[in-house]
């Protein structure tokens, strides 16, 4: 429901962004409420960074409207000062060290927590005085992650924050994110294609593919909405009859299909009687299947168009 008195943290209305030869965002409409952790999921080049750029006034949409706290973010210091977006490919002044970057951040983010930043520097073992351009990819990511977390901005975007971070550092990031979010609720938008790692942290999932939103739902509502059925091919086929099939795999007489829908106990019993195995589908698998299904659909339409020509 659109309530004019309390604008959503983020709202996109029919936003399209075209580059010379490509459509990065294709008529995207989206409404995100505040104080939640969102997962902005999708393949590389799906439009995640473009979406975040438009929302932070760093990039421009070709048409449509982007609203943050009910206002246009572009050149709007009032709104921008409540947002933090460190790009995956963020550039820093030539002579900047991590320490100087944090010093700057403390000037602009009013909720900046230096003690928290210091703690994170320690945990990520980040060299403070080394020039940023001499840092490794993982250390560079750590600089962005630390600014994002310690800024405590009302809306914080993390753009593929884990690039180059090892498993330990990634776990530190996820743990601190959950803890700090619990203590200081705010809106977090985590763009990622490592879905398994972040799935349990997300309250809401937005899946983008080729500039279109193909899934926008609570993570809990998605969890368990698909199941993989494996066993004898004909049994699988009869069990899957009348259901939306997201994926098919087969090996000789064996088949493994991913079908949509929550299983009732009766259906589980039915599967057991048919000698079929049911396995849960992870959020990552579901996202992969949905994306591939959407791609197939696009390809189908494309080939239909070819035929029409």
């Amino acid at each position: 429901m659109n309530n004019p008195t309390t604008p959503a943290a983020i709202e996109l209305r029919q936003v399209t962004k075209t580059y010379r030869d490509a459509t990065a965002l294709d008529n995207v409409s989206l409404r995100l409420e505040g104080n939640r952790i969102y997962g902005l999921l999708g393949r590389n080049g799906a439009g995640k960074t473009t979406l975040m750029s438009v929302l932070t006034g760093q990039g421009f949409q070709t048409s449509g409207e982007a609203l943050v706290f009910g206002q246009h973010p572009y050149e709007n210091d009032g709104v921008l000062s409540r947002i933090c977006f460190i790009r995956e490919s963020q550039r820093y002044p030539e002579d900047f060290s991590a320490q100087r970057a944090f010093k700057s951040a403390s000037l602009f983010f009013k909720h900046w927590d230096q003690a928290f930043a210091d703690q994170l520097v320690e945990e990520f073992q980040l060299p403070l005085k080394r020039r940023i351009k001499k840092l490794s990819r993982g250390q560079l990511s750590a600089v962005g992650v630390i600014i994002g977390l310690a800024s405590r901005a009302e809306i914080t975007f993390f753009d593929e924050p884990y690039l180059g971070l090892d498993a330990v550092a990634r776990q530190i990031f996820y743990d601190r994110l959950v803890e700090d979010f619990a203590a200081h609720p705010r809106t977090i938008i985590l763009s990622s294609h490592l879905i398994d790692e972040v799935a349990n942290l997300l309250e809401h999932v937005v899946l983008i593919d080729r500039g279109r939103i193909i899934l926008d739902d609570d993570a809990e509502a998605i969890r368990g909405t698909a199941v993989t059925v494996a066993g004898n091919a004909s049994a699988v086929q009869s069990f899957a009859a009348g259901r939306e099939v997201l994926h098919r795999e087969s090996l000789g007489s064996l088949a493994s299909w991913t079908v949509e829908g929550r299983m009732t106990n009766a259906e589980r019993a039915e599967a057991a009687e048919l000698g079929l195995e049911l396995a849960p589908v992870s959020l990552q698998q579901l996202v992969v299947r949905k994306t591939m299904a959407a791609t197939d659909a696009v390809l189908d339409t494309d080939s239909e168009l070819e035929v029409l020509k």
């Binding site: 921008l80 000062s81 947002i83 963020q90 550039r91 700057s104 951040a105 602009f108 600014i147």
Partner: peptide
């Protein structure tokens, strides 16, 4: 070339 992109990350408008 370098300070401007960083200022964007600091949520500073172009005008400011």
């Amino acid at each position: 070339t370098l300070t401007f992109p960083f200022s964007q990350a600091m949520s500073v408008s172009r005008r400011t």
